[in-house]
Amino acid sequence: MDPTSTWEGGAGEPQAPGDLPSATLTLHINGTEHTLTLDHRTTLLDALRHHLDLTGAKKGCDHGQCGACTVLVDGRRANSCLLLAVSQEGSRITTVEGLADGDRLHPLQEAFLERDAFQCGYCTPGQLCSAAGVLAEADYGHPSHVTPHDAPVGVPARLGPEEIRERMSGNLCRCGAYPRIVEAVEDVAS
């Protein structure tokens, strides 16, 4: 994609929302700057899907209950349905479209393919972004609910299946791909 382009497909036309409170802002998404005028009520998820034609992030609930909309905000995972787009000026957003390096898939994407870690694929972008967040959190030594209480502080956490299951439990998969997701994340973690 041309890094300076903005989506002009229509649904994404910056609206002139009349007397609606709106703002012109710049979002940094997958290394590209997008300047948009947005109704203040627009969530980051709707900004991506409706205004930027980045439909990789999915909407499963719009209420922070399913994880399908997970993206990375400054490297940390977040439910984009719970963020207002206007609050994200200045942050660096990575969506599933930004995980691969050109044609070279991210190792997590490779592992998901190899392990058959999805069926319908609707939760998959969220799972992938969440997994990328998990790897980073473990690197920083962030503990989870199942990390032993006597685990050393400040050193990278080891990601075994139990840790992965716990840390990935904010991302629902109704197709039940969980065991393969755990294997895929473990492949990349180790």
């Binding site: 229509g10 034609d53 691969a100 393919l113 694929g121 609707y122 998959t124």
Partner: peptide, 20 residues
């Protein structure tokens, strides 16, 4: 699979039709 892990697979509410 590749379309699904890269986010390019389009589902029903992701058509980006002009004027939608």
């Amino acid at each position: 699979g590749r379309a699904k892990v890269t986010g390019t697979a389009r589902y029903a509410a992701e058509r980006g039709l002009p004027g939608c």
